[in-house]
Amino acid sequence: MSELAVNSEKTRENHPLGEYLRTDRFPHIWCSGCGLGIVLSAFIRSLLNCGLALDKVAVVSGIGCTGRAAGYLKLDSFHTTHGRAIPFATGLKLANPELEVIVFSGDGDLAAIGGNHLIHAGRRNIDMTVLCVNNFTYGMTGGQFGPTTPSAARSTTSRAGNVENPFNMVGLAAASGAIYVARWTTAQVRQLERSTTEALQRKGFSFVEIISPCPTYYGRMNRQPTGLDQMRYYRANTVVKHFASPHEVGVALGGQIVTGKFIDTERPYLPHPQEGHDGA
């Protein structure tokens, strides 16, 4: 039997990613079994993979469970209003093109109230990376259905089952003009890290959707009461189909989850390099 680690202050600091986290704010507020910590961890590792000057990295979050992500990162971080992370980030990037700007927000924030800004940032191909953590619900406000909640799924505002059709975030991002579009689940941590690293390296609007468990609301109301249930479900029902048509990878309740990299192309982006005086 091995000895258990001593719960010392030193231990807290020497987590490999400890120096990039506001550990004075830990443990974080996300529920047991929520996938957000996994995405945050993968994101930090991706930043390190890119060898970015962390002083030049800015993370913008909107409102919602994912909205709290920026606050846990020891970087320039902005916690803006609901749905408005992308236009805030647009201003930040255009005013200071040297910055590597990342929007780290949730499905409700980005696709419902913020949907208009998402598609316009994609159209303009603003040079930023959007990490959209999709847990199919509004977790912070208590489990209502959102723009990505599968039809028939239950929620606190669709107890008899969601009657609406959801967005397929990958299709939406691709249609708006994003030059890098990928989807992973929190059970695919290595692919998620590799893909986030690629997204950060691309010049233009990069979009990574990360399907993540919400045990407290979405899972509990749809027969997967723990994070582990949902993670097991992901592992059993996920396939990887790189460059599949982004418009045919919708997520149905209980159905297959198609993951992978769907778009990886180039297009003129904003700010224009010569005008934006950032390196090639």
């Binding site: 443990p27 996300w30 079994g33 910590g37 996994i38 961890s41 993968a42 890290e193």
Partner: peptide
Amino acid sequence: MCTMICPEFAIH
């Protein structure tokens, strides 16, 4: 894998 899959940064 434990380090990457842990949402709480509680294990490495």
